[in-house]
Design a protein around this nucleic acid. Structure first.
Lengths: 158, 158
DNA sequence: CGAACTTGGATGACGTGTCAACTATTCCGT
DNA sequence: ACGGAATAGTTGACACGTCATCCAAGTTCG
């Protein structure tokens, strides 16, 4: 193994800026959603994926695949959301092992209340200060990074 | 409050790509550090900040400010790191409330072992596939986002 | 058919993050 | 000097993630 090639000042600065953007933007959006809508970003994600399908009803495994979450993570999170009445579980008649996750009226009300102010926050903190070129550049960068990471790390099927 | 202006397809795609880059890149780097060096990214961050100062010794509050971590988060994390022998705590003679955090030999060994492969991973997954223009664009974007978020959210002093 | 294997999903243990509360000092104004 | 405010740091409760494990229901194949 050759000598390590450390990051130069320029790279160091870029890398720290990127990391910091992630943390502050993520924190701002989480805080906003939590204080204004009493939902975590994870709750929101689950609800988004449920409302995305016609009958607001999905098998746990399909939800996990769509969200790219580990099944165990999803199972834990669904338990917490069920306890709060945001989603419900129903048996699957065709496969005795399976379970359906259904969006409850409370869950639907929660996401409908949360979505507008979330989008506003994303605009305020992100799109409002980016030019079209910025957006394109970022999309391109992200696409390449994602492809690279997924080519390197073993990623189950998809 | 006016009608919500939702994200159009272009924005939607950009936003999802950005989010996904964060998750996959973060996951890849964490996994790499955990499996190759038995450190979490947070452990690494703490160790980096400790080795950054001359005597590898900092007051908890200074460490918290430098890392921009909540004091409670830092306190919890330091307890776990102390249990593993990566850092130690020492009393502060000049201020009876205070505590110094010191880097142990084990801690130093851990970060020296972890740093090279971490930098390699950052290059492989990030800088190797970015042009100079990409890096500049990203740095610029991140700088603006950070400034905007910090201008909006109340941010303690600094 | 029945044993081995796979799959869907839940669970427990533990590391991590946040918030609120708490303790023990130190500081500061009168 | 003394009483209230600020500061340093810890703790506990709870939400969240990951890993390993487990169980029960399906699948495969002799």
């Amino acid at each position: 193994m050759a000598e390590t090639r450390w990051l130069d000042d320029h790279e160091q600065h870029a890398w720290r800026a990127y990391l910091r953007m992630n943390t502050v933007l993520g924190a701002a959006l989480s805080r906003q959603m939590q204080t204004e809508s009493m939902l975590s970003m994870q709750d929101f994600e689950v609800l988004v994926h449920l409302t995305d399908v016609d009958d607001a009803r999905l098998r746990v495994s399909e939800l996990a695949r769509a969200m790219r979450w580990e099944k165990s993570r999803l199972s834990h999170h669904l338990s917490r959301m069920e306890k709060r009445g945001l989603i419900g579980r129903e048996e699957c008649t065709s496969d005795g092992r399976g379970a359906f996750i259904v969006l409850t009226p409370e869950g639907r009300a929660a996401i409908e209340a949360a979505a507008p102010s979330h989008v506003d926050a994303v605009r305020r903190h992100f799109f409002d200060i980016l030019t079209d070129d910025d957006v394109d550049a970022l999309t391109s960068i992200a696409g390449r990074v994602i492809a690279r990471v997924e080519a390197t790390d073993v990623c189950p099927s998809e």
